[in-house]
Amino acid sequence: MQQEALQEITAADTLEALQAVKTKYVGKKGLITQQLGGLGQLPPEERKARGAEINVVRQAIQAALDEKEGTLKRAALDAKLRSEAVDVTLPGLGLPSGGLHPITRVYDDLIGIYRQMGYAVVEGPEVEEEHYNFEALNVPWYHPARDLQDTFWLEDGRLLRTHTSPMQIRYMVDHEPPLKIVVRGKVYRYEATDATHESMFHQLEGLVVGEGISMADLKGTIAEMARGLYGPSAKVRFQPSYYPFVEPGADFAVYWDNPRGESKWLELGGCGMVHPNVFKAVDDLREQAGKDRIYEGMTGFAFGLGPERIAMLKYGIPDIRYFYANDPKVMGQFRGELG
């Protein structure tokens, strides 16, 4: 019987056929089961030996059944998996991938550096009063420095801010020193557009006010920014310059180890020690608003730079007009880690 059973097991090529064989031999009414059931009619001395014999047969059949079942199940699974195969080289659904504007990315880089140094980040109005844009920043209406910033005037006498510096005034009027801020935002100049000039662009402005703030602190701060932007070996150079709202004033340049081209000094922006007339103008405005005069006698520094210029240099963008054309073929390139 064992021989027959094993042959039938081998012949079974489906799980259903194997189940039938199983039922035939080891099922409740199977042949083996019946034989085991017949043991009771044998004399006790025979019963033990016969029982052992049948059990050996039963175990052999059961082992063969289990093995065959495993084989058949594996084959069935293999067939199922084969039938489910997908050509994974076909493209997936073309779902959108978003991205930030390159100016935002440069702001994120810069502001990240200043956040680490404990600066607050603020914004302010783009339509500005003449007083905040010029007078309070030590640029009276008759000052030739106004020629440096060609202005879009509004019909109501206000103007489009020519720099983010008016936020120095607004912020100081509303807050008390010591303070450390950076200001981000759009600025406007009455200027014909070409590859390097735009009538609208962006600035990052910094202001630190406290007691005993020095120009060396300013230079160290710009150097920290330079290291954050251009790596640990970045160097900073200061040269005398003039901005009416600072004294002494400087232009700063960063030595850039360009991995893709000529290394050179990059003129990045202007800076200086806050002019006492600016503190006076702030205190005048505070007094008008019923607040204490607290800025005169303070020292501080301010700096400003343009993210467009940094982006153009950093990403190799040849024309400033790319920033506001919003060409998907250009914007789509600014994803992930960039160079």
Binding site: A120, P178, E211, M215
Partner: peptide, 22 residues
């Protein structure tokens, strides 16, 4: 000019000034 960093603790009126920007 040497390079140093300002050491100051900002006045409490400046705390939270970044919220809108964040």
């Amino acid at each position: 000019l040497p390079e140093s960093l300002p050491t100051l603790r900002v006045h409490s009126s400046n705390v939270g000034a970044s919220q809108a920007s964040e």
